[in-house]
Amino acid sequence: MAVLEVRQLNYVYAAKTPYEKHALKDVSLQVEQGEFVGVIGHTGSGKSTLVQHLNGLLRPTSGQILLNGKDIWEKPKEIRRVRFEVGMVFQYPEHQLFEETVRRDIAFGPRNMGLSDEEVERRVQKAATFAGLREELLDSSPFDLSGGQKRRVAIAGVMAMEPQVLVLDEPTAGLDPRGREQMLRQIERYRRENGTTVLLVSHSMEDVAAIADRVLVMNGGEAAMMAPTEEVFSRAEELEAMGLSVPAVTRIFMALRRRGYDVGDNVYTVEKAVERLMPLLKRGCRPC
């Protein structure tokens, strides 16, 4: 059974006003337990609106969201439970920190869950480790940290709720290349070790290509594609028509193929590119 299922979801912003906007149109999708799904789409394609439905921050105009087969809006009063099961990290989450110490800030979510002090502390420790925060940082003020560290604190705050599904909206935006890579590695490790389902919203095709099992492509409020990563990036023309692109390395390989080099398709990570290029270089690098 799919851990998360979206059925015929429609969402209209500011209904019945001149600013009315149909942000989501008949979106349906299924996410399996433990899967890593990348969500890509042009600005305004509805990807942020979609993910805010997954933990009940927005209520669908029509359609359903099923978590473990149960409609999350079945009992609107208990929507908070859903938020603990579907953890959501917003864009620039470092702006939500408010506590006196990092430890207490990370503990905010678990405390809201009504857990015991020991359990909260255990989760804080664990989440901090996964987010790459050193122990001695836990007792400093979150406002004294660097931007990258603040973001780690915010992400740890959501990880500490130990949700079944972790949704991250642009977690690498504004980080330097090393920070990006580290962040993605840590998210991937967290998923592997906890069996958490992860949805990653990103503008970076490289990030998504490197890490996602499947990719959801949003376009104009519709789910345009939902397919394994290689399949999505093999449809380069369609992606470009939606104002998206394929990873830079894929573009290079497409150009190489057009010039007659036998490099094969489905290259969307640098590792794979190296693997394909090495035999070619050994042969003397001529078009065949």
Partner: peptide, 16 residues
């Protein structure tokens, strides 16, 4: 807008 965003973020962490 900012208030809205922060409220959503805290609600996502279970703020009631």
């Amino acid at each position: 807008e900012e208030t809205d965003k922060i409220m959503s973020a805290q609600k996502a962490r279970g703020a009631d």
